[in-house]
Design a protein around this nucleic acid. Sequence first.
DNA 1: ATCATACCTGAGTGTTTCTGTCAATTATTT
DNA 2: AAATAATTGACAGAAACACTCAGGTATGAT
Lengths: 140, 140
Amino acid sequence: MRMSTKAQYAVRALVSLNLTSDGDPVSIKDISSRENISLNYLEQLFVKLRRGEIVKSVRGPGGGYMLARPAADIRVDEIIDTVEETLVPVSCMEADGSCSCTSECATQSVWQGLGNQIRTFLASMTLEDLTNEGRRRLDS
Amino acid sequence: MRMSTKAQYAVRALVSLNLTSDGDPVSIKDISSRENISLNYLEQLFVKLRRGEIVKSVRGPGGGYMLARPAADIRVDEIIDTVEETLVPVSCMEADGSCSCTSECATQSVWQGLGNQIRTFLASMTLEDLTNEGRRRLDS
DNA sequence: ATCATACCTGAGTGTTTCTGTCAATTATTT
DNA sequence: AAATAATTGACAGAAACACTCAGGTATGAT
């Protein structure tokens, strides 16, 4: 039961972006060197984040990425969904919580409940929350 | 973020065992055919479950496995721990929730909180709960 | 214009984990 | 002795993961 680095990187990169941005776009290269994440790998993630309308891109010199929406409107579960990491703990279960198992499957309720817990928790945190947390850590 | 089949099979197999047992040991072959899980694979899981003192084995004809403790004393998170599936969502974090990340890692709190949620939820369910759920499904 | 910057894209690759098989052994009961 | 069933370790195919590489395209600055 591990969150993939894809999801971890995406969240970290967005916090980093939001922390260092002052209205201007931030280049992916900056984020890469600051967070020690492979540049090319980060690019792939940002393609997805752009398509998911989490960030928007500015091309050309001085360009980079910036948030497509206020940080308070970006939930952590959205970020993870966008980089295509499933939050559903078993494969027989759909994203909406329904399950294709037979009715005599007694363990269904465990995974269904677990999925709900995970979803609810990650939906309760926004990028703004994490950025504030980051600022607090920088101060101390 | 998927629970491995190892964990899923272990829980299903134990529910099945507890449902069909009437005090006598249940052979792994029975469970295998009832739950459609590879016999040899199940064996591996039961070795771990035995070492983890979730089940005990009875060898020879008429033998098999039985619960080592009352079903009400076996929590789901214990089962999953025993078959060696980690419940900690990121690798930098220990089982006790402590993290080896640097202090400026702002995403730590997400994974830490998520890990706690998962652990707490799975610790709130026992094998007895699931068995009762199974009985209810069989009746209807 | 052209050059540098930086986003954009898809193909490819080594590693690891997962999932399961196979073969052989040991212990127990009938 | 023979049958049953747990026990163990080695192994292997497949899939996912975590990148790398090699280009391409759009844009602003000189």
